[in-house]
Design a protein around this nucleic acid. Structure first.
Ligand code: MN
Ligand code: MN
Ligand code: ZN
Ligand code: ZN
Lengths: 143, 143
DNA sequence: TATTAAAATAGTAACAGTTACTATTAATGG
DNA sequence: CCATTAATAGTAACTGTTACTATTTTAATA
C-alpha cells in the first residue's frame, strides 16, 4: 500500500477516528489521542490526518466556512451541520450519482465530484430552542 | 431598511462586487476597490462584506476548505470550483427545492438549507492540462 | 542481531485569513 | 449648525494550519 510506516501515533489516530461517529476537528482528535499518547504533538495529528486522507483510509471534510473535520467513514455520504453548535452528522440519504453528469451539461467545467451539505438544527439545540421559546411565552403571559 | 449608513466605502464595495461575475475573496475585492478609494482599509472591506451579507444585499460563499468568497447575485444557485486554480463559477443548474424535505426525513435535524458545490477543472486549466499531456506524449514519442 | 538510510516525531516558529481594538472622521436627524 | 453615534483607517491580536529542525524511530538489509 502507501509507504506509510506503522507508528503508534498514526495507528492510534486512525483507531480513535474510526471509533467516532462525530466528525472531529484536528484539535478535537488531538485531545482524544492525547489520553493514550500524552506527548503527541498537534502537528503530528495534522500531518497524519492529511496523509491518511491522501491514502484513502479516512476522509477530509472541508465543511463550509469552518475548520476542517475528519471522517473515519470513507464511502460516499452526505452530512448535515448544526448551525447552532457546529456539530456534523451523517445523513442516511441516497447518493446522487447523476448530479455530476447534469452539472457537466450546465457549464463548461470537467466535473470531478460534488459536495452536498445540509444546514439545520440538531435535536439537542432544537430542544433548547423550544425550551427558550416556552420560557419567553411564559414570561410574556405572566408578565 | 437596515440601519446602515450610506458611506462611499460601502457603496463602492457593493458596486464593484455586483459588477463581477467572479466570486472574489475579501482581499481580491479590496484590491479592486482600492483603485477607487486608495486609502480604504482591508478591515473595512471585511466588515462591510459581512454587513452586506447579513442584510441580504450580497451572498457569502463559504466554499469548502478555502477562504470565503462573496457573490453579488443573491438568488439561489449552485457553484463549481476549479480544483487547479480555485476559481468559482456559477452553474446554470435548476435549484433542487425537494432536497431539504428529503433530508429532513433522512435524519432528525430541522433542515434549514443546503449547499451543493461541484468540483471540477475549468476550461482554462483544462486546456493547459491537455497541452501538458500532448507535450509528454511528444516527449515519449520523440525521446 | 547490528547497521544503516529514510521517515516520522516533538516542539516550536511562521504563516494566512480574519477579527478586534482604538482614536479619529463622517453621516444622519433634529 | 450641532450632537449623536456609526463607520473608518491603521494596527494589533487571534485562530487554524503549515513549515522547520534537531532528534528519535522504523524497517530493510547484511
Ligand atoms: Mn460522515
Ligand atoms: Mn454565484
Ligand atoms: Zn446543535
Ligand atoms: Zn482553473
Amino acid at each position: 500500500m502507501g509507504n506509510l510506516r506503522n507508528t503508534s501515533q498514526r495507528r492510534v489516530i486512525l483507531e480513535e477516528l474510526v471509533k467516532l461517529k462525530t466528525h472531529p476537528t484536528a484539535n478535537e482528535l488531538y485531545e482524544i489521542v492525547r489520553k493514550r499518547i500524552p506527548k503527541i504533538s498537534l502537528g503530528t495529528v495534522y500531518r497524519n490526518l492529511e496523509l491518511l486522507a491522501e491514502s484513502g483510509l479516512i476522509q477530509k471534510l472541508d465543511t463550509a466556512g469552518t475548520q476542517k473535520r475528519f471522517d473515519g467513514m470513507v464511502g460516499d455520504h452526505y452530512h448535515v451541520r448544526c448551525v447552532k453548535c457546529g456539530r456534523v452528522d451523517d445523513l442516511d440519504f441516497p447518493f446522487l450519482n447523476s448530479l455530476n453528469k447534469s452539472a457537466s451539461l450546465a457549464g463548461n467545467y470537467k466535473i470531478i465530484s460534488h459536495r452536498l451539505e445540509f444546514e439545520g438544527i440538531c435535536p439537542e439545540c432544537r430542544s433548547q430552542e423550544l425550551d427558550g421559546k416556552s420560557y419567553v411565552d411564559h414570561e410574556r403571559i405572566t408578565g
